[in-house]
Nucleic acid binder design. Structure first.
Lengths: 242, 242
DNA sequence: CCCGACAGAATTGTCGACAATATGCACCCC
DNA sequence: GGGGTGCATATTGTCGACAATTCTGTCGGG
């Protein structure tokens, strides 16, 4: 007879755009960055973003701080926010860091108990070899890979690691599509994902981590061959606003 | 010609505390957290910090966002900021991340070529067991550990990783001194450092990483055994400010 | 006696405006 | 003509106030 009346009190939001808060702005802007709407190094003026989202500069500032912590934006005191540039001299080191953190995720996924998320991940990873053979180009297969990554994120339960990897992936994910564009790499990576799924189901953390690191090593062989030619080390333009 | 409006060029700082900006507040508060001024889980009310630093709430909010990105503070929407506690889900995850990144550093140290930095690191690490036996308390030994860490940083040549680990060490290094306060742990860690030095000299990256991860696992056993007695996450809704 | 609902207080989210500082441009001197 | 200097503009940092939401203490009913 206990009348469960949750304290939902008719949430009436007056603002026309109900989702224009700091978090929403950060999410939308992050998506824009991911989609390449802004050039690397482009300035993000607070007033412009405030006008775009029909709000004040305060939530925009919060959103920019959030994006900075995510790594996709760099804020310098009194000089504003800019899109982060992958022109770091530590490009290869970032690759190694991502490798280590991804290995941690695989390890945690293997240690996680068997629940629906784990079953989903194992299924997604095991299906990759078949998709690698069926896919005619790298783009379709990359989509499947991203699905498996999403399942891995869900099962590993390592939000901070995911956040860290995201902040470090900027400028690197461009290689991924190229890597799986070669059928040999595609199949090799798919098989490693399958190995990871087997290890995860068996609870073998070391094997899962080794498989994940193998995926990165497979990519590294590809990336290493084309990295040395990249050292522009100059600032092409000064004004890249908007 | 344009109109001439001569203005005062004198730089006059009106505020008595010239360095009370968001960054300064973040740094000072981070130091306070490190020194244990705030209890883990204590709330950080914006107005209280604003009063403390004689400024408005805006820079305080910026500082809190910064501290959140560093992991020493947890912010929940509409519920304010709290000092991060080991009970927070991300605490152990941060520990694992540090473990993975430290393993990467050891790995890179082993792969580095033999130069003066490597010789220095190997010597520093090999000397730890003797120092562990000679040290009468944990504090002296912790100093030797820090020296070895400095040598490892120099030889591994992973500045980005070091920066990342530094940003994640908040609230964790407090345990380190306690861990080496027990002689058994002290000796175990020293021996693992020695193993790491051996592996580094032999160029065995996997062994070096395993030794480093062993050091963290040794610490984890200590931390895990002491955590349940900390705070039982009940409902300590009393005033925990200041 | 315990559970749910209500009102008050406390705290956070957002806003518009002002002050401080960096950037860009024209001018002046060499 | 080139380089340094100073001002005008644009952008960021900060402030005080209001609105929205959550938390706390109290009251009434079963």
């Amino acid at each position: 007879m206990t009348k469960r009346s949750p304290r939902t009190k008719a949430k009436a939001l007056r603002t026309p755009d109900a989702r224009v808060s700091a978090l929403g702005i950060a999410r939308d802007t992050a998506r824009d960055i991911e989609r390449g709407v802004y050039q690397p190094g482009a300035r993000l003026r607070e007033q412009a973003l405030a006008d775009k989202f029909h709000c004040s500069r305060a939530p925009v500032r919060e959103a920019l701080r959030l994006l900075e912590s995510q790594g996709s934006v760099v804020i310098e005191p009194m000089r504003g926010a800019r899109i982060a540039t992958p022109q770091d001299p530590t490009f290869y080191e970032v690759f190694l860091i991502r490798r280590a953190l991804a290995g941690l995720m695989a390890q945690q996924a293997a240690l996680a108990k068997h629940d629906e998320a784990k079953i989903h991940f194992v299924a997604a990873a095991r299906g990759l070899p078949a998709r690698a053979r069926a896919a005619v180009d790298g783009h379709a297969f990359a989509k499947s890979i991203r699905k498996a990554i999403g399942a891995l994120i869900a099962v590993s339960r390592t939000p901070r690691t995911v956040q860290l990897v995201r902040s470090l992936t900027f400028g690197h994910e461009a290689f991924q599509d190229e890597i799986v564009d070669i059928k040999k790499n595609r199949l090799a990576q798919a098989n490693l994902w399958r190995d990871m799924a087997d290890a995860a189901e068996a609870g073998d953390a070391n094997a899962a981590r080794a498989a994940m690191e193998g995926i990165f090593d497979n990519s590294r062989d590809f990336v290493a061959g084309r990295l040395p030619t990249e050292t522009p080390k100059r600032r092409p333009t000064r004004r890249q606003a908007e």
